[in-house]
Deep mutational scan, measured.
Amino acid sequence: EFTQISGYVNAFGSQRGSVLTVKVENDEGWTLVEEDFDRADYGSDPEFVAEVSSYLKRNGGIKDLTKVL
C-alpha cells in the first residue's frame, strides 16, 4: 500500500523490508514513474534519503510548500 511521502504533493512510497518503492503521479492520478530503492545499496540513511529525494525532483515530484521540511 502506497502512502504519501512527507513534503511532496504527488509522491508516494511503499516499504517492503529494506526496499522502498516510490512513485510520482500526475494531476489525474496516473503513475508517471515508479522505482525501487534498496536501503542496503546505500552507505547511510542521509545518502539514501538524498537519492530518493533527487529522483522525485527529477521526475516531477511537487514539493508541498504548506509544510516545513
Rank of each mutant, 00 (worst) to 15 (best):
E1R: 10
V9R: 07
G29I: 02
D41H: 11
L20V: 06
V52H: 00
K63H: 10
E25C: 15
D38G: 02
R16N: 11
K23V: 08
E28Q: 13
F2L: 06
L56A: 00
A40L: 11
V19A: 01
G13T: 08
K67L: 15
L69G: 14
S53P: 00
D45F: 13
I62M: 07
V52T: 01
D27Q: 11
V9L: 11
V33Q: 06
I5S: 04
K57E: 15
G60F: 08
E35F: 11
L56Y: 00
D45S: 06
T31V: 14
E47R: 02
N26C: 10
E35G: 08
L65W: 12
Q4S: 08
E35L: 09
E47V: 03
N26S: 11
D36C: 13
G7C: 15
Y8N: 06
N59W: 14
V33F: 12
G13A: 13
T66P: 09
D45P: 03
T66S: 11
Y55D: 01
A11Y: 03
V49D: 12
V19P: 00
A40E: 09
F37E: 00
S44M: 02
V22M: 01
T21Y: 05
N26R: 06
F37L: 03
R16Q: 08
V24C: 06
V24R: 00
N26A: 07
R58C: 14
D38P: 01
V49I: 13
G29C: 07
Q4C: 15
G43D: 11
D64V: 07
I62S: 04
T31A: 09
Q4L: 15
P46G: 13
L20Q: 00
N26Y: 05
E51R: 08
V24D: 01
E51M: 12
F12C: 09
V33N: 09
L20R: 00
Y42Q: 01
K23S: 06
F2M: 06
F12R: 03
Q15R: 13
R58L: 13
S14W: 12
L56R: 00
F37P: 00
T31N: 05
A50T: 08
N10F: 04
G7K: 04
L69C: 15
E1L: 11
V49R: 11
V22N: 00
D45R: 04
F37I: 03
G61W: 05
N59F: 09
F48D: 01
N59L: 07
E28M: 12
E35D: 07
A11K: 00
S54V: 07
G13S: 12
K57R: 09
Q4N: 09
T3K: 14
L69S: 15
W30G: 10
A40D: 09
K67P: 15
F2V: 05
Q4P: 12
S44V: 02
Q15N: 08
Y55E: 01
I62P: 01
L65T: 12
A11I: 03
N10G: 02
D64Y: 09
L69P: 15
K63V: 13
T3Y: 14
V49N: 10
F48E: 01
P46A: 14
F2Q: 04
V68T: 10
T66D: 15
Y8I: 05
V22P: 00
Q15G: 07
S18Q: 07
S53H: 14
V68C: 15
E28I: 11
I5D: 03
Q4V: 12
T3F: 14
Q4D: 04
D36S: 15
L65M: 12
G60I: 02
G7F: 05
S53A: 12
V24A: 00
K57D: 15
V22F: 02
P46C: 15
G13F: 13
V33C: 15
G60N: 04
E1T: 13
T31P: 07
D27R: 09
S44K: 01
Q4W: 09
G61V: 13
F12G: 01
F37K: 01
Y8W: 14
D64E: 10
L20T: 04
V22I: 10
G60V: 02
R16S: 09
I5M: 08
S54F: 09
S53I: 15
F48N: 01
T21M: 04
E34Y: 10
E28C: 14
G43A: 11
V68Q: 10
R39W: 05
G17Q: 02
T31S: 06
N10Q: 04
K67V: 14
F48G: 00
V33R: 06
W30F: 13
L65K: 09
E25Y: 15
G43P: 09
S18W: 07
T66R: 06
E35Y: 12
K67E: 15
G61F: 05
R39P: 02
L32M: 13
T3V: 12
N10P: 00
F12L: 04
N26T: 12
P46I: 15
D27C: 15
R58E: 09
G29E: 02
G43V: 08
R58Y: 09
E28G: 08
L20K: 01
Q15M: 14
G43N: 12
E25H: 10
E47S: 04
D27P: 11
F48W: 07
N59C: 13
V9K: 08
L65H: 12
I62H: 07
L65P: 14
D64K: 04
V9D: 04
R58K: 12
E47D: 07
V49S: 09
E1N: 11
N26D: 11
V22C: 02
S54A: 13
A50L: 09
Y42F: 10
I5P: 05
Y42C: 04
S53G: 08
L56T: 00
V52N: 01
Y8F: 10
E35S: 10
S54K: 12
F37Y: 01
E1C: 15
E25K: 14
G7D: 04
Y55F: 14
T66E: 15
G43F: 07
D41V: 07
E47F: 03
Q15H: 08
W30C: 15
N26M: 06
D38R: 03
K23N: 00
V68P: 15
G7M: 07
V24Q: 00
L32R: 04
R39T: 03
F2W: 14
V24M: 02
Y42T: 01
K63R: 11
F12V: 06
E47Y: 02
G29K: 04
E1A: 12
V52C: 06
S44G: 06
V22Q: 00
S18M: 07
E34T: 13
Q15Y: 15
T31E: 05
F12Y: 11
L65G: 11
N26K: 05
E1W: 12
S44A: 03
V49W: 15
R58N: 13
I5C: 12
G13K: 11
L65C: 15
N10D: 01
I5V: 05
E34K: 11
N10R: 08
S54P: 00
T3D: 05
E35P: 01
R58A: 13
T31W: 05
G7E: 05
N59R: 05
V52E: 01
A50N: 09
V24I: 13
G60C: 08
E1M: 11
S44P: 02
Y8E: 04
A50C: 13
F37C: 03
G43M: 12
S54W: 09
D41T: 07
V49Q: 12
F2C: 09
G43Q: 10
E28K: 12
D64S: 07
V22W: 01
V22T: 00
Y42N: 00
A40T: 08
A50P: 00
V22A: 00
T31Y: 05
S44Y: 02
S44Q: 03
D41G: 06
F37V: 00
